[in-house]
């Protein structure tokens, strides 16, 4: 119980730290194409670690295996790349059609 919760605590901190750094990168990077990269830290490993912590925590808490977090992990894994690719295509298109640099 104690070992499990200590392990879950480490996972939670690491996952949240990755999500934090992802958003910090979103803030700090200079161009749009550079800003695309950091948030994927939060959506891949960050989410994965926090979901693993949630599985460990609830399994210990309820005394039976709780694994439905896998579904959320699968959802994030398959949907994030799709939105990012769509967004990059939209950005490329907008840059091609609006070289005057007007905002929005």
């Amino acid at each position: 119980m104690s070992a499990a919760s200590a392990f879950a605590a480490v996972l939670v901190i690491l996952g949240a730290l990755l999500a934090f750094l992802g958003s910090l990168g979103l803030l700090r990077m200079r161009t749009f194409y550079e800003r695309i990269h950091p948030p994927t830290m939060g959506t891949t490993l960050g989410t994965g670690l926090i979901l693993a912590a949630s599985m460990i925590h609830f399994t210990a808490l309820e005394g039976r295996p709780v694994v439905h977090e896998i579904l959320l992990g699968g959802l994030m894994t398959f949907t994030t790349p799709v939105t990012y690719m769509l967004l990059v295509r939209a950005a490329r298109r907008r840059e091609h059609h609006a070289d005057d640099g007007s905002d929005d």
Partner: peptide, 15 residues
Amino acid sequence: AACIITATPGTSWVR
């Protein structure tokens, strides 16, 4: 391949 590249931080599939 596109999904793998985009999901990996630091690389993204553009075109």
